[in-house]
């Protein structure tokens, strides 16, 4: 099965299994890492829901979702860091001096 179709099939199954926890998701990519973006949620997601999704996703995809090599870590990796912010604002501060 093509990666994208495989991802979509996985997601449909995930949705079926998550009846009482509507899954937030984004359009799947055609990239090598085909399952990226399947799980997409804000860091403010309640722990109970997050744990449910992690477990379901791991069961259906076969991907371990603990540690840094999971989609949750990927989601967190999009967070703008304090270092990035400091650099973004450095121009404004130097301009104000």
């Amino acid at each position: 099965m093509a990666p994208r179709k495989k991802a979509e099939a996985l997601f449909e199954k995930l949705e079926e299994d998550a009846v009482q926890y509507p899954v937030e998701y984004i359009r799947l990519t055609d990239g090598k890492d085909w399952w990226q973006g399947v799980l997409c949620y804000d860091t403010s997601i309640p722990d109970a829901r997050k744990n449910f999704l992690i477990a379901t996703f791991a069961r259906l995809s076969g991907h371990e979702t603990e540690g840094k090599k999971n989609s949750l870590a990927r989601k967190d990796s999009c967070q703008v860091s304090p270092e990035e912010r400091a650099q973004l604002f450095s121009f404004l501060k130097s301009g104000a001096e």
Binding site: I26, G31, C78, V80, E84, F89, L92
Partner: peptide, 22 residues
């Protein structure tokens, strides 16, 4: 715009599009 909140949000959007979608 030059507004710091706008700079941050534009950067965050680019980061998501880059990181998640290549």
């Amino acid at each position: 715009s030059p507004d710091p909140t706008s700079l941050t949000d534009a950067y965050a959007l680019i980061k998501v599009l880059t990181t998640r979608y290549g």
